[in-house]
Design a protein around this nucleic acid. Structure first.
Length: 439
DNA sequence: TGTGCCGGGTG
DNA sequence: CACCCGGCACA
């Protein structure tokens, strides 16, 4: 029962995506669209369409144009409105600000009403502006403020501070990450989260899963997903960014250490548990086995931590993304291992203990903590079985005969529920003694 | 009553 | 073998 619930929780989170548009839309979507529309309305090229969709289309156009200009900046700004850049280079402001004037009222018009791509032809600089320097300045100031407040880029402090180049890389990554994350709800949690904090955690790129995420979703996909994103006005990933954060939890026994960066947790493990020199950044990757990423709801950070571990496997989403975690799963419990400081062999052992089938990957971390009473290696069941078979049926059991006492551990059925039967271990599915949660 | 899994059946 | 399920014992 309980387990079921736990299982569903993460689901609920996912489904939230479906619902989200209702609540979250107002703020997020609007912001986005605004950003989009502004960007092109400002366009130095005096570009065209005005609808949301077209807006997006234009959005891309910008990207192209921009890249020509800013090869060095890596096209980071391509996803943002040009306004930002222009603002940074104060000199350009005047060049485009007038253009903006007319766009101001007009740009908001939904494109359908203005089918002509030449909408911007109205753009001809407003006359009233030129003459009055003061008014002009005021308007400009207002404009700048507006843009500042709407441009997603500006929202990030680091970007403006360090200049286009520095911010460039980071943003490119984070942007691509967040955009690509929209491809599937499953992915959205990790990548997008990372893009939020102004201090991006380096480990992200180190993680094979993540890097795959980033690299595989290169420009092409980004464009595509991005478009669908805007087309369907799906602000979800962004929304989630705000409330969810990826944390790294030390899985070493009796260690509840949770850090926000993988490098941090790795260092922690290196120094505290592996007894290595903390100063040296040397890492053989072994630390990977001792921590797991957890998605934490920032709203309920503290309790989230306690919940995440012992509950549902679905929390971590599809296993493939998280090869490491698969190991994590098996590790901790059996990990009540030899508590020697240099249990170098521990991780590998643990990782190999499991003889389960590949599809069982998802179950990972959860069970580790929740089932503390595991005391026998997996073979336990098989051993006893063969025993009874080979010797003689009578020797093993007292009264009940062959039936072995029921284990206290929750079995797959209980943990995953009938709905997720495909997550059960094979034995459970076959109605045999559970191999995953042995007692 | 729900669950775990033995024992046996099927392909 | 892998897969499936009837049915029993247990909680």
């Amino acid at each position: 029962m309980t387990s079921k619930r736990l299982l569903e929780q993460p689901r609920a989170g996912d489904s939230t995506e479906g619902r989200e548009p209702v609540a979250g839309k107002a703020s997020k979507t609007n912001t986005l669209q605004e950003g989009a529309s502004r960007s092109f309305e400002i366009s130095p090229n005096g570009h065209y369409f005005t609808s949301t969709r077209e807006g997006h289309y234009i959005h891309k156009k910008f990207a192209c144009g921009r890249e020509e200009d800013e090869q060095s900046s890596g096209g980071v700004l391509k996803h943002s409105c040009p306004a930002h850049r222009l603002i940074l280079n104060g000199t350009h402001v005047e060049a485009w600000s007038p253009v903006r004037g007319p766009g101001e009222p007009g740009c908001r018009l939904p494109s359908p009403e203005t089918p002509h791509p030449h909408t911007s032809s109205i753009i001809p600089v407003p006359h009233d502006r030129r003459p009055s320097g003061l008014a002009d300045k005021e308007v400009m100031a207002a404009t700048v403020l507006t843009i500042l407040s709407t441009s997603p880029l500006v929202l990030n402090p680091s970007s403006s501070a360090s200049g286009a180049d520095l911010a460039g890389k980071g943003w490119k990554e984070s942007l691509s990450a967040s955009y690509s994350s929209s491809t599937s709800g499953n992915w959205s949690w990790d990548a997008s989260d990372q893009s939020v904090p102004s201090t991006p955690s380096p480990p992200l790129s180190n993680d094979p899963g993540k890097s795959f995420l980033l690299s595989s979703q290169s420009d092409d996909n980004i464009e595509e997903t991005e478009s669908t994103h805007f087309l369907f006005e799906d602000p979800i990933p962004r929304k989630r960014k705000n409330s969810m954060k990826v944390m790294f939890k030390c899985l070493w026994k009796n260690c509840e250490k949770v850090l926000s960066t993988s490098s941090g947790i790795q260092r922690h493990i290196r120094t505290i548990h592996l007894g290595r020199n903390g100063d040296s950044d040397y890492s053989d990757g072994e630390e990977d086995f001792y921590y797991s990423e957890i998605e934490v709801n920032m709203d309920t950070l503290s309790e989230g931590l306690s919940n995440l571990t012992p509950t549902s496997p679905t929390t971590s989403g599809p296993a493939p993304v998280f090869p490491v975690l698969t190991c994590d799963a098996s590790r901790s419990e059996p990990a009540r291992m030899i508590h020697t400081p240099l249990s170098q062999s521990a991780p590998s052992t643990l990782c190999h203990i499991r003889t389960d089938h590949a599809y069982q990957g998802p179950m990972t971390q959860i069970r580790t903590v929740s089932i503390g009473e595991k005391r026998q290696p997996v073979n336990h069941t098989t051993v006893s079985k063969t025993h009874t078979n080979t010797t003689s049926t009578s020797t093993s059991k007292p009264t009940t005969g062959t039936r072995k006492p029921r284990g206290e551990a929750k079995k797959c059925r209980k943990v995953y529920g009938m709905e997720k039967r495909d997550l059960w271990c094979t034995a459970c599915r076959w109605k045999k003694a559970c191999q995953r949660f042995t007692d």
